[in-house]
């Protein structure tokens, strides 16, 4: 049984089925379908791609124009009781600036009818490392601190599902690392986390699964490498190091699997639309040409490159 079959057999925590959202004549999200399973799932896309609109529909802040969304077997918009099991941190949500951080988190706990709201708030604030500043008014917080106190409020009621829209915005590099460690710890506790971001390396480090949204449509979903494979119309760039690059270049250029070959500082940059065939042909060609291969390295296997490609196309 492979990994994708395992995923299909699990019950999705979130199911988005053919969902669209439009505002007048502007289509913000168009016929998007995906499932979210336990673990961390990254929702990626450039600004204006429709990520926030999607999350707003999932969290019940916005109505879908078409399609259906199921969250934990229901939908919080029609069944607010589900919010006991869901923690939401939206991107542009305001906080009560006149309150202290502690009061804000405590208020959120009370609104979720947590038994001991004060103790839950103290625990939650400690987890985001904001205990020292907890009694200061939120208006005195830096942007990163605001994000942290909002995150503390998001999981103060111990939800099993966390939906976080750009939670790392405004955080400095050290805070980002702390955030990432905290989110990984929350996921390790068995929570499902759906996190949106346009900062790809953050999600690449966090998410076991990614959903790529471009222009309101789901461009790709799945494991990053699986997404990469799905983009079979996109040429791969591979850097090949060898002892006789010119000879290998002349041999490779005639292969069907090779679109172009470029000599770059003693190495070859090969563009291929069929990397499987290239993998098979490369050792054979090298042997025939008596070329010794010293390195084969994909150049664009990072999330950033896939994302850029999707946006550009």
């Amino acid at each position: 049984m492979n990994a994708s079959e395992t995923v299909k057999e699990r019950t999705p925590i979130i199911r988005v089925d053919d969902v669209s959202k439009w505002f007048g004549s502007v289509v913000a999200v168009s016929e998007v379908s995906f499932d979210v399973y336990p673990g961390i799932t990254g929702l990626l896309g450039p600004n204006g791609a429709g990520k926030t609109t999607l999350l707003r529909m999932i969290t019940g802040l916005a109505e879908v124009s078409q399609g259906e969304i199921s969250v934990l077997g229901g939908h919080p918009r029609s069944d607010p009781d589900l919010y006991r099991r869901i923690g939401v941190m939206v991107e542009h949500e305001g906080s009560y600036d006149f309150m202290s951080g502690r009061r804000f988190v405590e208020l959120t706990a009370r609104l979720h009818e947590v038994d001991d709201a004060a103790a839950a708030a103290t625990r939650s604030i400690a987890r985001v490392n904001l205990s020292d500043a907890a009694d200061r008014p939120i208006r005195t917080y830096s942007r990163g601190m605001r994000q942290r106190i909002r995150l503390a409020a998001t999981f103060v009621h111990e939800p099993e599902l966390l939906i976080l829209d750009e939670p790392l915005n405004g955080a400095d590099p050290r805070q980002r690392v702390e955030f990432q460690e905290l989110l990984l710890a929350l996921a390790d506790e068995g929570r499902t986390i759906l996190i949106s971001s346009h900062v790809l390396e953050e999600v690449e480090l966090l998410a076991s699964r990614v959903l790529l949204v471009v222009n309101g449509k789901l461009a790709a979903e799945g494991d990053f490498h699986a997404i990469r494979q799905a983009l079979d119309d996109r040429p791969y760039q591979v850097r090949i190091s060898c002892d006789r690059p010119r000879a290998l270049a002349a041999g490779l250029i005639g292969l069907d699997s090779v679109d172009s070959v470029q000599l770059d500082d003693g190495t070859l940059i090969v563009l291929s639309s069929n990397v499987g065939a290239l993998q098979a042909a490369l050792p054979r060609s090298a042997a025939e040409l008596d070329v010794r291969l010293t390195g084969v390295e994909p150049l664009d296997d990072s999330l950033e490159s896939v994302f850029s490609y999707l946006v550009e196309s």
């Binding site: 607010p80 959120t108 979720h112 009818e113």
Partner: peptide
């Protein structure tokens, strides 16, 4: 206006 209504609506409270 200040986008804090979501703090109240995204809770299990009946409307």
């Amino acid at each position: 206006e200040d986008k804090t209504l979501g703090n109240l609506t995204m809770t299990p409270l009946k409307r």
